[in-house]
Write a protein that binds this DNA or RNA. Structure first.
Lengths: 114, 114
DNA sequence: TTAGTATATAACAATTTGCTTATATATACA
DNA sequence: TGTATATATAAGCAAATTGTTATATACTAA
């Protein structure tokens, strides 16, 4: 049994969470960078509540955590979460998504907002 | 970039497929054994159409293939499929599900049926 | 204190999902 | 050939999902 072994029910639950393009991209980005809600709104071009709801789902299983910094709330990966090792094995197979953050920076939106 | 790199849209699509307890278990079992529909019906205790519909989804993306053997149709993993390497990285983290087949054998249902 | 910004939550509509039952098709065998 | 078995497909339904708009909350700064 691998160190990352996870029971099948929980694995299915995590895969379902990751099986959404928006959330999968979020988690991939968060694995390398903290981000706030407004950045994701800009990246995914959907409403702010939609982003908050995706983040809520990720937070509910403990995969991400939030931290207020003044006016903003920053999300980050909770690398201590029991499901993180399993998740990481998935993330490691995905192409880097950091170019999305770089595009924000070039437009000045990363600095302005967060 | 890993050899198994997969574009993010496709990854999300595959993860969504695997993010169902029934399908995830099916694929895990099929990775080691060919199975026919009636075995899955027995294992999962759901209707035969429900099993067929799950298998259909897996077949539609090419992850499994079917082969008629007389009265029965056997499903197996399509290890040549473009999404198999990605899928395998997920499967390798899951606990073995072969005990479910052994339970069938003990009840005589594996031999009788297939 | 008041206005503006960032975020969360509630309520709702449209879509998707996963099951069921009914039925069609294909094979096996008496 | 006629009947039984294995599977697929169609149709219908309830629950879940994902987006939206409206609104509440919390912080910042004038």
């Amino acid at each position: 049994m691998l160190k990352t072994a996870i029971d099948l029910d929980r694995a299915a639950m995590i895969l379902k969470l990751l099986g959404d393009k928006t959330r999968l991209t979020m988690v991939k980005i968060l694995d390398n960078h903290d981000c706030c809600v407004c950045e994701f709104v800009e990246i995914f071009k959907v409403s702010q509540p939609s982003i908050s709801q995706h983040l809520r789902k990720l937070k509910d299983v403990g995969l991400v955590k939030e931290e207020r910094r003044g006016q903003w709330i920053f999300y980050s990966i909770n690398k201590n979460n029991e499901h993180y090792p399993f998740t990481l094995q998935v993330l490691n197979q995905l192409p880097d998504q950091d170019y999305k953050l770089r595009e924000l920076e070039e437009k000045g939106n990363r600095i302005t907002c967060c």
